[in-house]
């Protein structure tokens, strides 16, 4: 297990290094000089040159890359070109919205998907199962940003239960949570549909296994067999998908945060792109990739702990 973990950690480090290089080089290609952009069209060439050197933009490519990388390793995400403040500060503010939103959506997705998937699998081919499967098809096909607009139309404009957008801050936790309800529902529903389908098919697979038949033959009731044997084994593939969904939720949040005007990491990336604040884009994208890679790593490790066969395959 230790050699497996070390091996996975090595590939995690390599992935992150390559990802940082890819992000850095991609954003180097970006047309437009950030210094020129910040100073406007009427700036003199001297002023632009002065700002370029102040921002460290005139250093060679590799120097800038390694400076950025070293900074990242020390937790220094650089300084925003437009806000003129350390990006780590901006990120900490935004994380207070993005992480609760992603967690909220993930919990909601599991709360919907697990019971629904279990009911569908245990009543295979019944009208309930057919109905659930049809509902999940609908959930998967809904564009989440459109679903978000419908939620606003019904629950914010129509019923006035929630606000249509914005975030009041965590000083008032109840209001803060309320403002995250609609975005979380919009993010969670399509994910819950996928998860329910995975839960159903994973459970159907395990319910057909010999050990489940043995458990039934031993005299356990259907319910006991389900909870003690089938469900535990079915959860392995389901949790992998939950791990993957974290990445979808982060990316989906970029759009949803824009629909609801939530001050999260997604909006920060967007503002960085439109304002040519490359430092913000680079560092926040790297942070998102870091989160995805680490979650994938943790899922892999958890998976290997539960299923020893995987360790052998990988090593």
């Amino acid at each position: 297990m230790i050699s497996y973990t070390v091996g996975r950690l090595m590939s995690l480090a390599i992935s992150l290094l390559l990802a940082s290089l890819a992000i850095f080089l991609l954003l180097e290609v970006l047309p437009g000089d950030p210094a020129q952009f910040m100073l406007g069209l009427n700036a003199t060439p001297e002023a632009v040159a002065k700002l370029r050197s102040a921002l460290g933009l005139d250093a060679p490519l590799w120097t800038r890359y390694f400076d950025w990388l070293l900074g990242l390793l020390q937790g220094d995400l650089g300084t925003s070109y437009t806000y003129k403040v350390p990006i780590s500060g901006l990120v900490i503010d935004r994380i207070g919205v993005s992480i609760p939103l992603a967690v909220f959506a993930l919990l909601l997705s599991m709360l919907i998907a697990f019971p629904v998937g279990i009911i569908a699998a245990t009543r295979r081919n019944s009208p309930t199962d057919v109905g659930i499967m049809a509902a999940t098809q609908i959930g998967v096909a809904l564009p989440n940003f459109w679903f978000a607009m419908l939620l606003v139309l019904v629950f914010a404009i129509g019923l006035r239960w929630f606000s249509a957008g914005g975030f009041p801050g965590w000083q008032d936790p109840v209001q803060a949570l309320r403002s995250l309800v609609l975005p979380a529902v919009a993010l969670a529903l399509p994910q819950a549909s996928i998860l329910a389908r995975v839960m159903r098919s994973a459970l159907l697979d395990t319910l057909g296994e010999d050990y489940v038949r043995t458990a039934r033959a031993k005299g356990l009731s259907r319910r006991q067999t389900l909870w003690r044997h089938a469900l535990q084994n079915a959860l392995i593939p389901v949790l992998t998908i939950v791990g993957l969904q974290f990445s979808f939720l982060l990316a989906g949040a970029i759009i949803i945060e824009n629909v609801f005007y939530l001050p999260g990491l997604g909006r920060l990336v967007f503002q960085g792109i439109t304002g040519r604040d490359l430092m913000v884009v680079k560092s926040v994208v790297m942070l998102l990739v870091f989160a995805v890679v680490v979650v994938t790593f943790l899922v892999d490790i958890a998976y290997a702990m539960v299923d020893p066969r995987l360790r052998r395959v990988a090593s």
Binding site: S15, L18, A19, L26, F248, I254, L288, V293
Partner: peptide, 24 residues
Amino acid sequence: MRANDLVFAFPALLIAILITAVFG
């Protein structure tokens, strides 16, 4: 395969947004 993993490390929509942001 490692090159593939690298692309998978980026949330799909994030890649799409970055590419269109960079190249217009």
